[in-house]
């Protein structure tokens, strides 16, 4: 940018570049819809993991919102904390840590998500990678003792292995039943355990047309097919796709993270490709990778491909032709 004054200030622009939002639906409305859709998972999390869970979520949201306000103030920008986007980021980050995480871990994660991943790149609409997930991966690399290994089990004061770690054979334990997985009565990070709650929230967002059904359908569908084909110990086509769908962070990732407006493609075909790509990388990591769960890394890696997915799937503008130099 040659001259800063060449561009209008943020407040003068109503529409930012990447989230192409239809006129009547504002950023605020969309973000608060996401918060509403996350509420069932919040309630279930508090039920299973206790009030410590609520405390962690409040710390996550508060530190994200405060960081956003401080950074925007310091940069001389309009303060936009009421648009709800920082609330969503803080809540999703809290959803990605276990109830045993110390409060400062959540604060550092929120500051990293908002200040480094989002505001350094120009704020809402310009971050190229999902803030909450990048912060989670950052925390995992920084303090693995809190984010890998045993997680608190529900309704209990002891910790145990997550279903996916048991399934992978990297941890001992008995696999919980399908019903426990579906309801969320299993060990894990705060927001991922209850497939039911996340499904309710996700379907609500699809019904409200906040998210496109294509991304979660392609993501979950790909995981189902690939784990069925390759996931079994008895050879090809002996895997248990239902278990892989219900366990781990797939529901949370597919409905709430892979559908992020800023860091996923805008074209319908692009969203299908994005979902399939997430599914492939998730299964790659779950079955043959170094971690029990691959959902968050799959979304981060696909975020890096978004500029290319949009290139390949962009509708051709009539009468315009690429000229090779």
């Amino acid at each position: 940018m040659a001259d800063k004054n060449f561009l209008p200030n943020q407040g003068e622009l109503l529409v930012s570049s990447s989230p192409h939002i239809r006129a009547k639906e504002t950023v605020d409305w969309l973000m608060w819809q996401v918060v509403i859709a996350l509420l069932p998972a919040v309630v279930i999390s508090v039920y299973f993991f206790g009030f410590r869970s609520l405390f962690i979520m409040m710390v996550g949201v508060a530190s994200a919102v405060i960081t956003e306000a401080i950074v925007q103030k310091a940069l001389g920008k309009a303060i936009t904390i009421s648009d709800g986007s920082a609330v969503v980021t803080g809540l999703l980050l809290a959803f990605n840590v276990p109830a045993t995480a110390p409060w400062w871990l959540v604060v550092i994660g929120s500051v990293f998500a908002i200040a480094v991943v989002k505001q350094t790149f120009g704020g809402l609409g310009y971050n190229f990678i999902n803030p909450a997930l990048t912060a989670r991966a950052f925390l995992l690399a920084a303090w693995p003792q809190y984010l890998a290994g045993n997680f608190p089990l529900p309704l209990d004061s002891i910790t145990g292995a997550t279903p996916l770690a048991i399934l992978k054979g990297t941890a001992a334990g008995t696999l919980p039943s399908y019903m426990d997985l579906f309801l969320g009565n299993v060990g894990g990070v705060l927001g991922e355990t209850s497939a039911l709650a996340l499904l309710v929230g996700g379907l609500y967002l699809i019904w409200q047309k906040v998210i496109d059904w294509r991304t979660p359908a392609a993501f979950i569908g790909t995981v189902a097919v690939l784990t069925w084909v390759f996931g079994g110990r008895g050879g090809l086509f002996t895997g248990d796709p239902l278990y892989h769908i219900l366990a781990g962070g797939l529901m949370l990732g597919a409905f709430f993270m892979a559908t992020d407006y800023v860091t996923s493609p805008v074209t319908p075909k692009g969203r299908l490709i994005f979902g399939v790509g997430c599914g492939v990388i998730t299964v790659l990591i779950r079955l043959w990778g170094g971690y029990p769960e691959g959902v968050s890394y799959s979304i981060l890696l696909m975020n890096l491909l978004v500029p290319f997915i949009e290139r390949w799937t962009a509708p051709r503008v009539y009468g315009v032709q690429t000229v090779r130099a």
């Binding site: 950052f138 690399a141 920084a142």
Partner: peptide, 11 residues
């Protein structure tokens, strides 16, 4: 003080 291992890693 619990060191942030990520600081001595590439990121």
């Amino acid at each position: 003080f619990e060191p942030a291992i990520v600081m001595i890693l590439p990121p």
